[in-house]
C-alpha cells in the first residue's frame, strides 16, 4: 500500500515537473549535490583548533624500546617485530558509518586550501635559541599551483605536507623531521609560512597564509 502511494506521488511529481515548475526543480536538483559535497569536505577536514594540556597523575605509557621491542644479538640490535604495542579498544555507537567518520576525524588530514591571504601573529613568551633562523614554507604538494610556486622559492626550507606521514614510524630522516615540524606548527590552511619575529621587545610567531606566503 505504501509503495502504491509513493508511486502515485512520483507520478504526480513528474507531471508537475514536466509542466510549470521544471526550471525551479532543475535548479534545486543542481544545487542539492553541490551542498552535499561541501558538507563532506567540511567533515573531512580535521584541523586541530586547540590543544589544552594539564598535568595529570595518569598517563599513556608508550611501550619503551628498553622493554621488549628491541632484540639484542651481541652488538647487533634489531626491532622485535613481535613486540606488543599499546592496544586501544574502541567503544563506539552501533552505527558503523558514524564510527568511521569519528575515527577519521581523530587523525590529521591535509589542511584545506587557504581561502584568503592573511598574517597571524601569536605572541611567544620565551626565546628559543636558533628559532630566529626558522623560515618554513608548508604547502600541499598535490596542488600544482602551490607546488610550482614553492619550487620557485629560493633559500626557504620547504615542507610539502604528506598526509600519509606516520610519526610513529620514527623520526630519523630529515623528511620525517620536516613533517613533524610542519605538524607542530599546526597551520589552519595551506600554503603557510612560519617565522619567529621581534616587534619591539615582543616576540611573535608569524604565520602567513595564502598569497602572503610568496611575499618577501
Amino acid at each position: 500500500m505504501k509503495d502504491i502511494v509513493v508511486f502515485q506521488i512520483i507520478l504526480q511529481g513528474r507531471e508537475i515537473l514536466n509542466t510549470r515548475f521544471k526550471y525551479f526543480t532543475a535548479l534545486c536538483l543542481l544545487i542539492a549535490p553541490l551542498r552535499l559535497l561541501a558538507q563532506d569536505l567540511l567533515f573531512d577536514s580535521a584541523n586541530i583548533a586547540m590543544h589544552k594540556r594539564k598535568v595529570s597523575s595518569h598517563n599513556f605509557s608508550i611501550s619503551s624500546p628498553a622493554s621488549n621491542s628491541i632484540i639484542s644479538f651481541d652488538d647487533v640490535k634489531i626491532k622485535n617485530p613481535f613486540s606488543k604495542k599499546m592496544a586501544i579498544i574502541v567503544f563506539a555507537p552501533k552505527d558503523p558509518g558514524l564510527s568511521k567518520q569519528i575515527e577519521k576525524s581523530l587523525l590529521y588530514s591535509i589542511p584545506n586550501l587557504c581561502s584568503e591571504s592573511r598574517v597571524v601573529l601569536d605572541e611567544v613568551y620565551h626565546h628559543t635559541e636558533g628559532s630566529e633562523k626558522l623560515d618554513l614554507l608548508i604547502y600541499n604538494p598535490s596542488d600544482s599551483a602551490q607546488a610550482k610556486k614553492a619550487r620557485e622559492m629560493r633559500n626557504i626550507p620547504l615542507a610539502p605536507w604528506d598526509p600519509t606521514y606516520d610519526p610513529s614510524a620514527g623520526y630519523d630522516s630529515v623528511d620525517a623531521k620536516i613533517q613533524d615540524l610542519a605538524r607542530v606548527m599546526n597551520p589552519s590552511c595551506l600554503p603557510a609560512r612560519i617565522k619567529f619575529i621581534y616587534v619591539g621587545s615582543k616576540r611573535y610567531k608569524e604565520t602567513r597564509y595564502g598569497e602572503k606566503v610568496w611575499e618577501d
Binding site: 595529570s56 595518569h58 599513556f60 579498544i89 574502541v90 567503544f91 563506539a92 555507537p93 610513529s168
Partner: peptide, 23 residues
C-alpha cells in the same frame, strides 16, 4: 549505547596527537 567495535594494536593516535596525560 556504545559497543566494542575494534581493537587497534598501535600507538599512532597517541603519538600523532602527542598525548601524555589521561583522560
Amino acid at each position: 549505547g556504545l559497543t566494542r567495535t575494534k581493537i587497534k594494536y598501535d600507538e599512532s593516535l597517541i603519538k600523532r596527537l602527542r598525548l601524555s596525560y589521561s583522560p
